[in-house]
Amino acid sequence: MTVSLHTADLPRSLRPARSRGDRVFRFGVTGVGVFVLVIVGAIGLFLGAQLVPTLRRYGLHFFTQNQWVPNRNIIGVSAAVLGTVEVALIALLIAFPLALATALYISEYAPVRLRSLLTSLVDLMAAVPSIVYGVWGVFVLEPHAKFIARWLAEYAGWFPLFHVAGGDPHSASWPQSRYVASAFIASLAVSMMVIPLACAVMRNVFSQAPLHEREAALALGATRWGVVRSVVLPFGRAGIVGGTMLGLGRALGETVAVLLIISPAFDLSLHPLQTGGITISSLIANGFNEATSVQLSALLAAGFVLFCMTLAVNTLAAMIVNRSRSGAATEI
């Protein structure tokens, strides 16, 4: 028997000694991290604080009212919230397949020497200022996109989402003005900004698919598509979802392009092909110039709603991206 040296059989302190440089570095890095959190938290608090005067003035109708008519003292965000989600989801619907296909092409199909060029081209899309996308949307995209909108309304107009009120596509001179400045066209422009973000995340995850699993599929006689199906997509599922949601966060907050394209309208109806619409950020950009102090609070409170939506989406996305395929199922 060995003689026990310690009287208490309790877990010991496991704190190792740290060098001075290590301590300084840790302190510095922790400080920077905390600083970022404090800034984001302060922004949230500032925006949240605007809810108080807003709710005092307009009551809970602020959340349910869809009209925003400051002259008549009617202010509410429901149409803007709905419009924001509408524009973001349509943009995502367009961007998702394009981003996925682009990411797969770059990581799986493109010749090796072309890969870095294609990657930087897609990344360049993210570097284009959003006002450029807005102008492009108005002057280049819209004159063509309205025909797509009319085609959709003509053949799928029975479906409520594709209905355009007062935009009879069969009339001899079809009312073009009913098909422009719509949420659909704004979404097209926004999708161009979502693509590079979603594509970068997806491509990154795809390129990390383990080589030995790719070789396993290849050695069984798989085509490239077989490798994509059996290895790359299962491995990259988290990246696909996460990248898409990061893109959604981007789309929710897009301001200038939407502001330029869409003509403000506060209906609580989901007719994206039809002219008019509003999003929270374009509402703020539209209104804050002529707002009184209470109205400004209301605009910032609307911003708080957007802040919460984006924060929720981005947090969820980060959680999904970080949940890499580790743990029980991978390596034992």
Partner: peptide, 21 residues
């Protein structure tokens, strides 16, 4: 390529089953 690999199977140094399948 795929026909050849179908006829000539391979087992690798590191066991590489598809882990989630």
């Amino acid at each position: 390529l795929t026909d050849t690999r179908k006829q000539v199977g391979m087992v690798f140094q590191k066991p590489n089953p598809f882990p989630t399948m």
